[in-house]
Design a protein around this nucleic acid. Structure first.
Lengths: 329, 329
DNA sequence: CTAGGTGCAAATAATTTGCAGAGGC
DNA sequence: GCCTCTGCAAATTATTTGCACCTAG
């Protein structure tokens, strides 16, 4: 199962001051043809199969080179030797490591990343890299069923990014749809209507894209979650819609809720989009972040206008809070 | 800074079929006198200082023995050699690892543990152990200030357990206090009053205990958070109190909110309490879990009585939900 | 032509092991 | 006395390095 058998712009990745060589090319290709996490020795064996005159030292040296080039990532599963996994077009992730069959599975959790960041801040620690490894026994080993062969995490990431984007779009649609019925100011109603129809448009585009993604690998749809993000699972606007449902939400409050939702989703998509290497998932996130930002700006503009209209005496930015903030312990 | 210089019941821990030996006793004592994470070589050096005739192999063998005995825990910081940390009366934890000074710092996050469990469930993975390591640069190295010497994590854990318990007690007090004013049924009012005064009593006990803990190590109060648990940071009843504040809460609903809070805190304290080795923190958690359970049972009993009183026609357990449940994606 | 790249064998580094003697129960 | 513990030296494992030769740019 070749995952990303060839790298189109490999020359671009070549670390400065290094030359090309047929041996290393072979080793790199053998590595790229594999999936999952190989030890240096695995790679030696695989390479020797193609050309037995390649020495162990060269494989080690090529592995270092690939790390520098951003093709390979060194991971430590605590068994006394390092493994290497693809890092080109392969999202950062965490690991589930089965001690029975020694297979490892990848996942990513934005929720965990957020908490890790909070811990780092609380401890005044500048985090550069986080390792999360769950050791235990995998489904296949526990239940005795056959293990599914792995699907490229890059695709799974794109799938989950799209699912989140779609859920957000859907909840956004619902939010603005409800907003239209709720707000009283005619201009505000117009704005909400505009945003609602925009969400419908986006939703269609995203769903088409999702269908196209599925064509790349039919197994994609049935695989378990790769990207865990509770907050976005139901769409980032569902909390907002919930708030609209409550009584006593006036136009300004509706705007504020919208602003909060758009800001939250803009931040989420931007932040995660930026973290990743070039990938479909990254593109989805960043495009989405852009859209949310536009909405956000529009909402803020309109909110300010409406504030002025209601109390033209005060031009300053007096921010009204809907709820008092809580302090963390 | 001896952390737990001697282990009272070391004989109890001795793995079966092993004999006592003066050499190993010495190595174990040297290990226990240290704080933090030592490499095998560190321990060799330290041991040779006491008795230079002790060989490297014996130190390695003793380290294995200590692991089996539950005195030492092997940790891998990815630099090609294992470290060992105390595991007797030392809570499981995660690590912040400074790549500049090679010091490491401990923390625990129930929040992260919960998420990790959710990931494991979603992937049908049976988790046995979780490693969370944040690599980067510590406060001392980044800001150039002197590093504080480490405080025993067992004590920090107890401190944070107590702080959480106190916060929960406080919020519980507030909850029942508000409940007394709110409920209309005389018996319900009596129950809420009883619980409110109980919380006040517990609070006093806990605060005394907290003061006693501080006496053990004066630096304890000023150290940063060891145990991160957002949900409990403001007390597990604060969400409930918030709900009481809203209009339209009748007696039954007040009971239901109370039940939800008590159940949540019971679960939290029980679950975390059970996970730990014998320790002050564990005891605090388990005692607390017991108290919450009693309250929980009382509330459930009273709730059922009140339900019967209101609609005596239906005796079955018709569970009313205050809100529809959300589905996760 | 010159700075990499490569193979081989030797070096390193952390940890383990075989073996013969010492010591606990 | 038997079984475990210990020291020493040798073995093991993963990885790196020195050096002479090869090859790309």
């Amino acid at each position: 199962m070749a995952s990303s058998a060839a790298i189109p712009d490999l020359d671009r990745l070549r670390p400065p001051g290094t030359k090309r060589s047929s041996k290393r090319d072979l080793i790199v290709n053998v590595f790229l043809k594999q999936e999952g996490h190989l030890s240096a020795d695995d790679l030696v064996v695989l390479t020797k199969r193609e050309d037995h005159r390649i020495s162990r030292a060269t494989v080690y040296r090529s592995l270092q080179w690939m790390e520098e080039a951003g093709i390979a990532r060194k991971v430590d599963f605590g068994d006394g030797r390092f493994r290497f996994e693809h890092s080109y077009r392969h999202p950062r992730h965490f690991h589930l490591i089965c001690k029975t069959c020694n297979r490892s599975y990848e996942f990513l959790s934005s929720d965990i990343e957020v908490l890790v960041e909070e811990v780092a801040v609380a401890r005044a620690f500048t985090a550069r890299q986080t390792v999360v490894q769950i050791y235990g026994s995998c489904d296949a080993c526990t239940s005795g069923t056959a293990a599914e062969d792995p699907v490229n995490s890059e695709l799974l990431f794109a799938r989950d990014a799209l699912r989140i984007a779609i859920a957000t779009e859907r909840s956004g649609m619902e939010f603005y749809g409800r907003g239209v019925k709720l707000v009283t100011d005619p201009r505000a109603r117009e704005i909400f209507r505009k945003l609602a129809t925009e969400e419908v448009q986006h939703l269609k585009t995203l769903e088409k894209r999702y269908q196209e993604l599925l064509k790349q690998d039919a197994r994609l749809e049935s695989r378990p979650t790769f990207l865990f993000f509770k907050g976005a699972a139901n769409g980032l606007f569902s909390a907002g819609t919930e708030q609209l449902r409550r009584n006593g939400v006036d136009d300004l409050e509706a705007y504020r809720i919208g602003i909060r939702c758009e800001r939250g989703s803009h931040r989420f998509f931007k932040r995660y989009g930026e973290k990743f290497e070039d990938s479909e998932g990254k593109r989805i996130f960043l495009e989405f972040a852009g859209e949310e930002r536009e909405h956000l700006e529009l909402l803020i503009r309109e909110y300010r206008l409406l504030v002025k209209k209601h109390r033209p005496q005060k031009a300053g930015k007096s921010r009204a809070r809907s709820k008092p903030r809580r302090h963390s312990a």
